[in-house]
Design a binder for these strands. Structure first.
Length: 284
DNA sequence: CAAAGCTCCTGACCGC
DNA sequence: TGCGGTCAGGAGCTTT
């Protein structure tokens, strides 16, 4: 479940093997992931030099010298593996669910693996990238300079949904998924069921700070590895060991020492069809 | 327009 | 041991 921190870690892993390097060959092993590959997908990549890589929300954007940008989303279960030049000879073993293989001129091989195939790769002219969906409507980067309590207050202005759903809406803030929405609300000590408009200025300030902090800490920890996610070198992130509430139903949260037989510990509820984990004693 | 529901997919897990 | 049912969730689409 790659969210902003996991995509950022993937980007940092890809950068040294892709930036300023030429793509020698691209192979796809099925015609579609979530969406069909563009018909000229491999041709556009082949021979192109990678100018730069960036992350926008949960998206990876790879800018090519031929005027195209590769739009790459890891969906729910996507992961990227890099086989450095020395180890890629004679050839790596392609395993089940390896759908895309990119060969760099220096010999490194980049493999996209995605069992559930919620991920996708698309192409778009670089000049159009900011004008097309989802980027044209996407909310601000929570780790960017342009994000703070005032901005968040403006974004939540007049919203009638609960605050958890708002954090998950990519048109409000970019990059937050279910894990970090739960963790940010816990860190800010805000009940996930609160309606956006009911939050006062102080709470919104606290939430904006918590969003930034939880994402920064997760990046420092190499992201969260649950089920499918791992780094480009195969190592796991360890932020899942630092969860306060996510996936911890029935346990004490880090700031509670209450009697579990009385309080039941961290609760799991369903909001908008998604699990929410929270501590009723800390978040209200 | 906003908000909520539905859908895609596979593997893990559970109960019998 | 096997088998069917349920769950997980990002985001586009549909419905309200």
């Amino acid at each position: 479940m790659p969210e902003l921190p996991e995509v950022e870690i993937v980007k940092r892993g890809l950068d040294p093997v892709m930036r300023s390097q030429v793509i020698n060959e691209c192979e796809i092993f099925r015609s579609n992931l979530r969406y069909p590959f563009p018909p000229d997908f491999c041709e556009v990549l082949r021979g192109a030099k990678v100018e730069s890589l960036c992350r926008r929300g949960k998206y990876l954007l790879i800018y090519l010298s031929n005027g195209y940008g590769l739009i790459w989303h890891l969906g729910m279960s996507g992961s990227v593996k890099i086989f450095p030049a020395k180890q890629s000879y004679p050839s790596f073993e392609r395993v089940k669910h390896d759908h895309v293989v990119i060969h760099m001129q220096g010999g490194a091989v980049i493999v996209y693996h995605d069992p559930r195939r919620f991920g996708f790769m698309l192409l778009e002219k670089t000049e159009n990238l900011n004008c097309i969906r989802p980027f044209s409507k996407m909310g601000p980067e929570p780790l960017g300079n342009a994000f703070n309590g005032d901005v968040l207050a403006e974004l939540l202005q007049g919203r009638k949904s609960n605050i958890k759903a708002a954090l998950l809406d990519q048109n409000v803030i970019a990059g937050i998924g279910n894990i970090y929405a739960c963790e940010a609300l816990y860190m800010a000590r805000i009940d996930p069921a609160r309606i956006c408009t009911s939050l006062d200025k102080k709470e919104v300030e606290s939430l904006a700070r918590s969003v930034r902090q939880v994402l920064q800490k997760a990046i420092q920890a190499g992201g969260s590895s649950l089920k499918d996610y791992c780094h480009t070198d195969g190592n796991l992130g360890y932020f899942q060991h630092m969860f306060g509430v996510y996936n911890r139903e029935g346990e004490n949260c880090p700031d509670c020492d209450c009697d579990l037989s009385v309080t039941g510990g961290v609760q799991r509820i369903v909001q908008n069809g998604r699990s929410t984990f929270y501590c009723p004693r800390q978040q209200n």
